[in-house]
């Protein structure tokens, strides 16, 4: 499947097969007015199978969220039908308002206006800890 069918927009490539809907929800793509294509189980040389999301509009993508969910994703920025930028992701060092601390003893459990901040504590295992109570994500 060719990406040049989009003139201006974004293609999220190399999504782990089966993760596309999760990413669709996290990025709130259902709020967009433009065309969004979810292509599942595309044959891939590297991955065997992969998902692809095509967004037919230039938009700010939260790369931290993407890097947290699936750091293997490639983000292709398309302008005038050509790839103008290709970004490879890494797990972000810090996540803001993506995860929610489940520790009932954490200050965030009683003061909901606080930002939920998680920090990467183990890059290999992609483990995040609450910046307030140091509780691990569950």
């Amino acid at each position: 499947m060719n990406i040049d069918s989009i003139q201006n927009g974004i293609v999220l490539d190399h999504i782990t097969a089966g993760s596309a809907m999760r990413i669709y929800r996290y990025l709130h793509l259902d709020d967009l007015d433009c065309s969004v294509a979810i292509i599942k189980n595309v044959k891939s040389g590297k991955q065997g199978k992969k998902d692809i999301i095509k967004i037919d509009e230039a938009m700010d993508v939260d790369l931290d969220i993407l890097g947290y969910i699936d750091p293997g994703i490639t983000v292709n920025m398309i302008r005038d039908g050509a790839i103008v930028e290709k970004r490879r992701l890494a797990p972000p060092k810090r996540l803001k308002n993506v995860l929610v601390c489940k520790n009932p003893r954490c200050i965030t459990s009683v003061e909901p206006e606080l930002d939920q901040i998680f920090e990467l504590v183990d890059e290999k295992r992609r483990t995040y800890c609450c910046a307030y109570c140091e509780g691990r994500e569950k």
Binding site: R105, I107, L114, Y132, C133, E134
Partner: peptide, 27 residues
């Protein structure tokens, strides 16, 4: 001192003076 874990971390985000954690829950 606060019974909830991480309360001093919340304080640091808004404070204009140094904060000393004198105990935050079991943390």
């Amino acid at each position: 001192r606060h019974p909830k874990e991480g309360a001093p971390m919340a304080a640091v985000q808004v404070t204009t003076v140094p904060i000393i954690n004198a105990g935050d829950g079991g943390h």
